[in-house]
Amino acid sequence: MTKAGLIRLALIAALLGMLEVMVRIGRIDPLTMQAPHKMVIDLYSMLASGKLNKAIAKTMGNAAIAFMIAVSMGVISGLLIHRLRRLRETLDPLFATYYAIPVFAFYPLLILLLGLGDAPQIFIGVMLGFVAVVVNTLNGLDRVPRVLLKTARVNGMNPFETALKITLPSAAPYILTGAKFAVAYSLIGVIGAEFIMSTGGMGYEISFAYNNFDNATMYPLIILILTASITINMLISRWEKSLLKRRGLQ
């Protein structure tokens, strides 16, 4: 591990240690926040009892679906928009302001349109992640050296083949950056929507636990979400890094 990595780890450990001490000496009310060690124990018993497995599976499953839709649609849209200059010029300013839109405001409308099932939650996740993928894909495609496109043309490659064998591999590191955003956004979208209105899922369970002062459920769920998000993010980062390293860029 690098020195920076060690310092980072030490910092996190110190913060957790401080929290532990604060709760134990009573500076923080256990009704507000539990000691970290207790959260871990609660997480273990929660997982062991299996009573929230359904909620976890629902949220993670929906987030995964939102993620996959956001990435695949984002990449395909990026490829199309990149080819259509007019469309690009029209959309670019919209992309730049897109994240000023409070997507959740549309949630009630989405429920009206898509019903009370999982669809509106997935839709919110996709709405949040999709544009990040498009923007990063476009950024990557802009940087494909022109000479590579010429090479594709002299090899008689059609647009589809060119995308598959030249432009997408060339833009891959940027697309992965977009994918990292999509991981976080699809979780935010799905869980946030569950908070507002739904009948199950981790967001719903967290809000339910919150209303009932059930810290033994609330904190483990939060930890679980954090862990999942950070782990996936790190996996993609590692992949991204290996691509960049191969290209002598890191």
């Binding site: 090479t151 591999p169 060339s170 191969r246």
Partner: peptide, 14 residues
């Protein structure tokens, strides 16, 4: 039947 080598580096980094 025509092969070409461009002036710029056209190797595929990946």
């Amino acid at each position: 039947g025509i092969g070409v080598v461009f002036q710029e580096d056209a190797s595929f980094a990946w």
